[in-house]
Design a protein around this nucleic acid. Structure first.
Length: 289
DNA sequence: AAACGCTTCAACCGCTTATAA
DNA sequence: CTTATAAGCGGTTGAAGCGTT
């Protein structure tokens, strides 16, 4: 494990983490005895008050370490071991929508911790996607993105600056129907090609400022709505019902076509124009429909 | 059997966010 | 409103285990 004395900031000065700086605080792997003490204490007294918990429980650990051990290993609800294919699929779908929001992703997968999912992603899923030629950050094809982006950069032949050129769409194999939809889609929703819209900005605590129907939809959600939105990803059939309910309740015009947008096209388009993240939301939702 | 390289995952760190005083 | 403290998060590390040579 890591050397406790090696902690330093980028400018070389030592940084002290208050709860872990005391002499006599144990670090490194937990022993079965420590696990038992912590488990028994939390079962008896409950979670929380992590900073003072070690002293009260009689452990020579910092509160952070106790919390982590409990959250990631000792909690009775934790499901350890092999991640099933359906769990893997869910991780992929949620990551495509949420990015590296491990805690949020874990919250949607019963019995799995953020640390476990993060590790699984970094050691397996990331490599798996790369081996399949998929960018693990954007979930788009690795090579195609670059080619189209380069083409797009040298093109200025469309009247709407947000719309990819018809030549590019033809080259990319987009049908004429979808080409027309592209113009409508990008015009109606004023989607800027360069986006700057991170998937993480879909979250209530980190609002994006791009104009995107899905982004707007989620930006205007409260936490319960967002939570139920994520639940709908787990239960695919619920998603359209959820959107339709929101449509009826909302007078925001940009929501009006949300149930009729050609999401398959949105996915194709997002790949073609290279504004991965902004369209990534639509693309990920497309997969659910 | 030994040496080496690679993979996994528990645990730590620093930072941010939330809450209390 | 400001400051201090606690909790939570994501990135990173490195020991242990495993496979290969």
């Amino acid at each position: 494990m890591r050397n406790p004395s090696s902690s330093s900031s980028s400018d070389g000065t030592k940084k002290i983490t208050p709860c872990c700086s005391k002499v006599g605080i144990k670090k490194g792997p937990w022993t079965p005895e420590e696990d038992e003490i912590l488990s028994n204490y939390i079962k008896r007294e409950g979670e929380g008050q992590w900073r003072t918990l070690p002293k009260r429980a009689g452990l020579l650990r910092c509160g952070k370490s106790c919390r982590l051990r409990w959250m990631n290993y000792l909690r009775p609800s934790i499901k350890r071991g092999h991640i099933a294919p359906d769990e893997e699929d869910l991780i992929l779908r949620l990551h495509r929508l949420l990015g590296n929001r491990w805690s949020l992703i874990a919250g949607r997968i019963p019995g799995r911790t953020d640390n476990e999912i993060k590790n699984y992603w970094n050691t397996r899923l990331r490599k798996k996607l790369i081996s399949q030629g998929i960018n693990p950050t954007t979930h788009k094809p690795l090579i195609f993105n670059q080619v189209v982006h380069d083409q797009l950069a040298s093109s200025s032949s469309t009247s709407n600056p947000n719309t990819p050129s018809l030549e590019i769409m033809e080259e990319a194999g987009v049908s004429s129907t979808h080409q027309a939809a592209a113009t409508n889609f990008t015009t109606n929703y004023n989607i800027p090609i360069d986006g700057g819209f991170m998937m993480g900005s879909l979250l209530p605590s980190s609002h994006g400022h791009g104009h995107n129907c899905i982004g707007d939809y989620i930006d205007n959600c409260d936490e319960d709505t967002f939570s139920s939105f994520l639940d709908s990803l787990v239960n695919d059939d619920d998603f359209m019902n959820h959107i339709n309910e929101q449509q009826q309740q909302s007078s925001v015009s940009s929501y009006n076509n949300i149930g009729t947008i050609d999401w398959e096209f949105a996915d194709v388009l997002s790949t073609k124009v290279g504004s991965d993240d902004q369209h990534g939301a639509a693309a990920s939702l497309n997969d659910q429909l």
